[in-house]
């Protein structure tokens, strides 16, 4: 008995110090079976291209008004018509993609980096740090998400940068909680103990050994949060709390179009509205399908 126990302890670090190789996320075979992934990814790729190439595609400056061209129905010249200031609705919708995508990526980046750091600290250190971080997470989760974003932007002042910060802060608790839970599960595994035994520093263990193993749920959450962030940005700019005019943003353009609705100018809100719908839908589709690919147990839900 004593002999085998001793053999086990000496053998363990050598045998187990190699962390299991994270499973390959995507292969053509799994992706091909997920039409939702293809549809979502294709549209998002198309949208990113449009946003980048906006100055090449849109002939008119989306910020300059042409009073003579005001309120025109959709036609060959203006596929989705013009607004009251004679600006091309489709052109502004294409430029609006820049703001939406930028906010989506940067806000989620802020939430992801801060949240993962907090969650990692809470889960790995435990004790007081854990208690404190947990309470802060609870407090952030005590607000309905959009309401928190509205409060932060209205306090910091309405502009594009503050919108990104506000939406980023709202996303923090989701990532912090997710990371903490995953770290608690992973940290007692033998390969982590092994890494510690051979003298890896705490940061090294956290980032080189724990992080790669909790990546999957983070990826799924990130693609779903981008959908939320874009929707939140649209809501904030609809309320006048986002990027200020004349910057084209989908939410603000819809709010502007609302004043002309009763005059029968229906096309003004259609461009930005469809843009939000398709973009958020694609990110949701993508997030859902990535979750199915990474976790086949959840398929069918």
């Amino acid at each position: 008995m004593a002999e085998t126990a001793a053999a086990r302890t000496t053998a363990a670090p050598v045998a187990l110090s190699v962390a299991p190789k994270p499973r390959r996320l995507f292969s053509w075979r799994t992706v091909r079976r997920q039409p939702r992934f293809l549809i979502g990814a294709t549209f998002i790729g198309f949208l990113i291209l449009l946003a980048l190439a906006a100055p090449l595609i849109v002939r008119t400056d989306p910020k300059v008004s042409h009073p003579d061209d005001g309120i025109q129905r959709p036609s060959i010249h203006h596929l989705m018509g013009t607004d009251d200031l004679g600006r091309d609705v489709l052109g502004r919708a294409i430029y609006g993609a820049r703001v939406s995508l930028a906010v989506g990526l940067i806000a989620v980046g802020i939430g992801l980096i801060t949240g993962v750091t907090l969650g990692m600290t809470a889960g790995y250190k435990g004790g007081w740090a854990d208690l404190l971080i947990l309470r802060v997470i609870d407090a952030l989760l005590a607000f309905p998400a959009l309401l928190l974003a509205i409060s932060i932007t209205s306090a910091l002042g309405p502009n594009l940068r503050n919108t990104m910060i506000a939406i980023g802060v709202v996303a923090i608790p989701i990532y912090a909680r997710l990371t903490r839970g995953q770290v608690l599960q992973v940290k007692e595994r033998e390969y982590i103990e092994a890494a510690r035994t051979v003298g890896a520093s705490q940061t090294r263990v956290a980032f080189r050994h724990i992080l790669p193993n909790i990546l999957n749920p983070l990826i799924v959450q990130a693609s779903l949060s981008i959908a939320f962030a874009i929707l939140a940005e649209a809501s904030l700019s609809f309320l006048g709390l986002g990027a200020q005019p004349p910057t084209p943003t989908w939410g603000a353009d819809i709010n502007h179009a609302r004043d002309y609705l009763s005059n029968g100018y229906w096309w003004m809100s259609l461009g930005p509205g469809l843009a939000i719908l398709l973009t958020v839908f694609s990110f949701n589709l993508l997030g859902d399908s990535i979750r199915d690919i990474l976790d086949p147990r959840l398929r069918d839900r």
Binding site: A227, L231, A234, S235, F238, G251, I254, N255, A257, R258, L261, S262, G264, W266, S269, G273, I276, L277, V280, F281, N284, L285, D288
Partner: peptide, 22 residues
């Protein structure tokens, strides 16, 4: 479910007004 969470309620609101009241 996928469509419903993707449509902002200010846009669905405006479409409802457009359709059912105007």
């Amino acid at each position: 479910p996928l469509l419903g969470v993707s449509i902002p309620n200010f846009f669905s609101g405006i479409m409802l007004i457009l359709l059912f009241s105007l």
